[in-house]
Structures are given as C-alpha cells and as structure tokens.
C-alpha cells in the first residue's frame, strides 16, 4: 500500500488521481460558471450597458440643452426686435396724431375766422340795406310833404330842419 518515493513522484500511475483531478476540476468549472463567473459577467455587462446608456443620455441632454439655448437666443432676439418695432410705431403714430391735431385746430380756427368775417359782411350789408330803405322812405316822405304844402323859404327850411331832426332822432 505504501511506496517510498522522492517528493510526490509516485511509482506507477495514479490513475485515481488523474480521474479525481479531472472530475474535481470539471465540477469546479461548472460550479464557478454557475455561481461566480455568470453573475460576475452579468453585473459587469450590466455596468457596461449602464455606462453606455448614461453617456448616451448625457449626450442627448447636452444636445437638447444646446437646441434650447439656440431657440431661447432666437426668441430673445425676436422679442427685442418686436419691442423696438412697437416703440417706433408708437412714436410715429404719436407724431402723426399730434400733427393731425394741430392741423385740425388750424383748420377750425380758419373756419371760425371765415365765419366771423362772413357774418360781419352780411351784417354790414343788412345795415346798409336798412339805411337805404329808410333814406328812401324819408325822401319820399319829405318829397310828399314838400309837394303837399307850399311853403315859404323860411318855413321850408324850418320844415327841413324839423324833418332832419326827426330823422336824427329816429336813428
């Protein structure tokens, strides 16, 4: 049962050792593949894909942020332009309105002046017409009086004076 040997080198072939080594190694391989390497590979692969997806997500959000920034800048520019346009518009409108008001008041003043002048002229005409009528009536009256009675020179003068006085009073 025992053999004296150098170290562990055996006389004859240890067929059992060969078989035992082979079987135990295969069992170890199978067990480790199932309980150690499998889960370890799984978690390493998972981490890899996690990192991959994280990088992708970061890249995507960076892209999104860039797009947002661009639109924001564009919007801001547009808003500025719009505000400028509104202010300009308002200025222009104000100026136009002011001018219109001034023009309207000028026209109004002109119109009022003209109306006043026209009224003055018509009043004057009316007055002249009335005077004429009265002078005519007076003349007729004087003439009829002169014709109706023969008068001496003095009494005629007296009469004329009387009438003239009358005219003066009636004025």
């Amino acid at each position: 049962m025992q053999s004296l040997i150098l170290g562990a080198a055996t006389g004859g072939i240890n067929t059992g050792d060969i078989l035992f080594q082979l079987v135990s190694f295969i069992i170890l391989l199978v067990l480790l593949r199932k309980y150690a390497w499998g889960p370890l590979m799984g978690i390493m692969k998972e981490r890899q894909s996690h990192i991959n997806s994280e990088i992708d997500a970061a890249e995507q959000s960076r892209q999104e942020a860039k797009t947002y920034l661009e639109t924001q800048v564009e919007e801001l520019k547009k808003a500025r332009e719009e505000a400028k346009a509104i202010i300009d518009n308002a200025k222009k409108q104000g100026e136009a309105q002011g001018e219109a008001i001034i023009k309207a008041s000028r026209d109004e003043a002109e119109r009022v002046k003209e109306a006043a002048l026209a009224e003055i002229a018509s009043e004057k005409e009316k007055a002249v017409a009335t005077l004429r009528q009265e002078v005519a009536a007076l003349s007729v009256k004087i003439a009829s009086k002169v014709i109706a009675k023969e008068l001496d020179e003095s009494s005629q003068e007296k009469l004329i004076n009387e009438y003239l006085q009358e005219v003066g009073e009636s004025r």
Binding site: Q2, L4, A8, G16
Partner: peptide, 19 residues
C-alpha cells in the same frame, strides 16, 4: 524522502494526499 499513502479503489490507484 517522503512517502505517500495510496489506496486502490475500483481498480484505480488513489494518492490520498493528492485527493
């Protein structure tokens, strides 16, 4: 010089130290 304990089992020789 060291020996080794061997055992025959099912016609196979086992070195128990190796096992």
């Amino acid at each position: 010089e060291h020996g080794a304990v061997t055992k025959d089992f099912l016609g196979l020789t086992f070195n128990l130290s190796n096992v």
